[in-house]
Nucleic acid binder design. Structure first.
Lengths: 358, 358
DNA sequence: CTGAAAGCGCTTACAG
DNA sequence: CTGAAAGCGCTTACAG
């Protein structure tokens, strides 16, 4: 009503727009009841007559009425919104199918509820902003995919807002967080055991960045499986436990890691790679060196995504059911918001998918 | 203050919660001004004294005040939220780095504004639900990444809500949509021309699903480049224009497509593949057949992502600046919402990235 | 420049 | 079962 352009635009709008958004008042009037009754019908209150219900519903249909979210949220002190917080760095590495899958699973599940999922990119530079947003009551709860910020910060956050973590916080026993995760030790153990079952006796591994718990867990799963199978013996220098190289989850790092492994001259006939991305990189290098897979080296890995099926041979891997994890995170959060009891830890089931690399 | 359960819950909250959320009223009181003035300061109104400003800001800081979004949205008739609509099928194929990149770019940009991006998965089964949501005033605008639904439906939508498309709607001239896209014809032409410049004379192509405009555009770019270079001559059966196979953007389909190309027995020394994903699949097959790249067959493609760098040799490709596209979509939408004039079509610049495959 | 007041569109005790 | 009324927390003409 002030500047010129908007005025014109509004006029145009008024003409071209679909019937102005209906209000509760209009519905009530059309149905011949009070706003109170109309509202009760809408919210499924049991204290209304059949007749009121039908009439209100008819009015709603006729008017294409949809409750105004802001008004409803204001009085309910709810926003019907939850946030998925992902660190900026992760966003940049969105190429990693892992995060995309979690987010997809979460978004899919959320879309079946009447909660809305918003993506919150936490800039490393201004994590404060994210926290302010979360504290401002803009969302009813938050999903944290990782926590580059200090655990303390998040502890604080989780005290004023329902929060579900997608990774276990670094051994902070005081931390009463709710988490939905996968048993990484077991995943690695299953993949490694498969190699053992295939008769491999010198099983090497390529790990993820060992700064992260998940990578360390996978390393531990590999090691304990070798020990249990009696494949960890030998002098220190020739023990299979020596066959460890670290990567950063990218294909290139996987390739570099096998190169190093090969350069060390220690023989190995099995290789557990902590991620399919790295495995695909490792696989090419092995073949370049004239090594056959699974003939000379059997490979098993973790993550059932395009990286495990785009290779030749396709990779035997452990499916972490990642999009299910995203869904479960949302589910747990909504229960928390509803005040229901939720297990401190939810473990997503994992599963070996046998293909051709081992 | 009324029902029992809430009362208890509130009590619990009060104890465990960080300082109860401050309200405008509290800020005003602490600052010794009216809510009106406090509100003006918060909203940057010029009609306030310096003194008022400093006192209100001090109060805000002290109380950690953050405006309640619902209340603000209610009165402003704004939600400060925009939705990114992606069809369910796309969500499932989230593995395709393309969508992940667009979304990431959009989320990143949005996070620098005070708009919130929500991911809306449009179920094929219940597209109605999505439309209801969009029409309900829950968001101020929508970003459409693709449109499996009829153009008509979206045309209708775009009449009641600012909408920005990420793909050009199928030649619907009446359709006054705003779109942010890339010039696919040019992208293909650049990639193909590079092959021509490298001295290749029989240049084949692997297209995306030709049902989509983008795939047809890329095919057209390839064709016109060959024609312009005089490489399209010859009898129909041996014209390079015959060297076309269709894929579906997955690596496997790229592999299958070259197999068919090879099976036809027509020689080719250049190959333009419409996506890096397909190119990676095609590349392996070529090498399996003992063909060297770029020696025997030079390859150029489109999309600068992990698929173009994880191969050996790495792929010469056209960078579509996909995450920039996501950002530009948000930018255009926010301008539309603000009532500013926006170009009907925004073209994202593209760029040849020369690597080793051609 | 500032405050009192109205109102955004709902929900929900309260009193029939 | 139902309606009148209050109130959720803001913003913004309106009248100083």
């Amino acid at each position: 009503m002030t500047t010129d352009i908007p005025r014109v635009e509004r006029a145009v709008r008024e003409v071209s727009t679909a019937p102005a958004v209906a209000t509760l008042e209009a519905v009530a009037a059309l149905a011949g009841v009070s706003k109170s009754t109309a509202s009760r019908v809408i919210n499924g209150s049991p204290r209304v007559t059949e007749q009121a219900i039908t009439r209100v519903n008819a009015a709603i249909a006729q008017l294409h009425y949809v409750p105004n979210r802001a008004a409803r949220n204001l009085v309910r002190r709810r926003t019907q919104m939850i946030a998925m917080v992902i660190p900026e760095r992760t966003a940049a590495f969105f190429a990693d199918p892992y995060f995309a899958e979690v987010i997809q699973g979460a978004a899919m599940y959320a879309s079946t509820t009447d909660y809305t999922l918003t993506l919150l990119i936490e800039s490393e530079a201004d994590a404060e902003k994210t926290h302010r947003f979360l504290q401002s009551g803009s969302v009813d709860g938050a999903l944290l995919l990782s926590h580059h910020s200090s655990s303390a910060t998040y502890l604080e956050l989780s005290r004023s807002l329902p929060v579900v973590f997608g990774v276990r916080p670094v051994d902070d026993l005081e931390f009463e967080a709710h988490t939905v995760d996968v048993d990484n030790v077991a995943a690695a153990a299953i993949a490694t055991q498969h190699l053992v079952d295939r008769g491999r006796t010198r099983i090497a591994t390529i790990t993820g960045p060992l700064a992260a718990t998940a990578a360390r867990d996978r390393l531990a799963g590999w090691r304990s499986t070798l020990e249990a199978a009696g494949l960890a013996s030998g002098s220190a220098s020739e023990s299979a436990l020596e066959l460890v190289e670290e990567g950063d989850y990218t294909p290139a790092s996987g390739a570099a890691a096998v190169e190093r492994l090969l350069a060390r001259g220690l023989p190995f006939d099995g290789l557990f790679v902590a991620s399919a991305q790295m495995a695909s990189g490792a696989l090419s290098v092995l073949r370049e060196h004239g090594l056959s897979v699974p003939g000379d080296v059997a490979i098993s890995t973790i993550d059932n995504n395009s990286f495990s099926t785009d290779t030749k041979p396709q990779l035997t891997t452990v499916d972490l059911h990642t999009s299910e994890k995203g869904a479960e995170m949302v589910k747990a959060l909504l229960q928390l918001i509803a005040g229901e009891a939720v297990e401190r830890e939810t473990w997503i089931p994992i599963e070996l998918v046998q293909r051709d690399s081992a």
